[in-house]
Lab assay of single mutants.
Amino acid sequence: MGMPNRKYADGEVVMGRWPGSVLYYEVQVTSYDDASHLYTVKYKDGTELALKESDIRLQS
């Protein structure tokens, strides 16, 4: 078993793309699913969504 190939840690605050949009919002990573390679993130309004790594970026 190798290390999970994840870029962002639980609790890390990053920018997540809103689905169907080009806009990124501040989100907190809450979990990562090794099987689906999706991150569960929480937006400031409390919305929780699963995002692909390509829809997440570090805060500038």
Rank of each mutant, 00 (worst) to 15 (best):
D45P: 01
G11C: 07
E12L: 10
P4T: 10
R17E: 01
S36T: 14
T47V: 08
R6H: 05
Y8G: 01
H37Q: 15
V41I: 03
H37T: 09
M1A: 15
G16Y: 07
K42H: 06
E53T: 04
E53K: 02
R57F: 11
W18D: 03
Y25V: 14
A9T: 08
M1C: 15
D55A: 06
D45M: 03
G11L: 05
P19R: 14
L51Y: 02
G46I: 03
D33H: 05
D55K: 02
G11Y: 05
Y39P: 00
P4D: 12
W18I: 09
M15F: 13
V14F: 02
M15D: 05
V27K: 00
S60I: 12
V29K: 00
K7N: 05
Y8N: 01
Y39F: 02
L23W: 12
V13Q: 07
A9M: 12
A9H: 11
Q59P: 15
S21N: 06
V41P: 00
M15C: 15
Y25I: 11
G20I: 02
K44P: 11
P4Y: 08
Y25W: 08
V14L: 06
E26G: 03
A50Y: 15
G2S: 06
P4G: 15
V13P: 03
K52W: 08
Y32N: 00
A50E: 13
K44D: 06
S60D: 13
P19V: 03
K7A: 07
D33W: 02
I56H: 01
V27T: 03
Y43M: 15
P19H: 06
E26R: 09
G46C: 06
V14N: 00
T40G: 05
A50V: 14
Q28K: 12
T47W: 07
K42M: 12
L23T: 12
E53H: 05
R17Q: 05
D45K: 02
R6Q: 08
W18L: 10
K7C: 06
R17T: 03
D33K: 02
V29E: 00
D55C: 06
D34E: 14
D45G: 05
M15P: 01
V13A: 06
G46D: 05
V27I: 05
D55G: 03
A50T: 14
D55R: 02
G2F: 05
T47Y: 07
D10Y: 05
G20A: 05
T40V: 10
V41A: 05
V29R: 00
S31Y: 08
K52M: 11
P4S: 10
R57N: 06
A50G: 07
Q28G: 02
H37N: 13
Y32D: 00
Y8W: 09
L49G: 08
L38T: 12
D34N: 09
Y25D: 05
G46F: 04
A50N: 13
Y39Q: 00
S54R: 08
